[in-house]
């Protein structure tokens, strides 16, 4: 038995996404220092979550699909954080004795 969602859910989702796009775009014209990156990433993550929850029907699906959806992201974070850790700490050892 397959279930379908009311059309208005999709329309609202799309409107929310377009509003979030407007937020990113306009923030791009304001100097927030490091917060430009943080806000942009936060909005992107919010958009991705909205798409996954409503368009891709993660909302209401089984736990194993939730797991599959986050696994790739977690592994990407492992890769980025450990590699970035190397680049950040490279300057820590003083080379001039």
């Amino acid at each position: 038995m397959e279930e379908v969602v009311q059309p208005k859910v999709y329309v609202r989702t799309c409107i929310a996404l377009l509003v979030l796009l407007a937020v990113t775009w306009s923030i791009g014209y304001i100097n927030l220092g490091p917060f430009n990156l943080i806000v942009a990433l936060a909005v992107s993550i919010a958009k991705a979550i909205v798409i996954a929850l409503f368009f891709m029907h993660i909302k209401g699906s089984s736990r194993i699909l939730h797991l599959a959806a986050v696994a790739g992201v977690i592994w990407l974070l492992i890769m980025i954080s450990l590699t970035l850790g190397d680049y950040i700490s490279r300057g820590w050892v003083p080379l001039n004795h």
């Binding site: 775009w25 014209y29 942009a40 891709m56």
Partner: peptide
């Protein structure tokens, strides 16, 4: 196929600010 299409959309959602809006303009 829909899942694939939405995924491609999500990738762009990250590419747009990361490439076009690195700092403020």
């Amino acid at each position: 196929a829909g899942l694939y299409w939405h995924f491609v959309d999500i990738v762009w959602v990250f590419l747009f600010p990361l490439l076009y809006l690195v700092g403020h303009r």
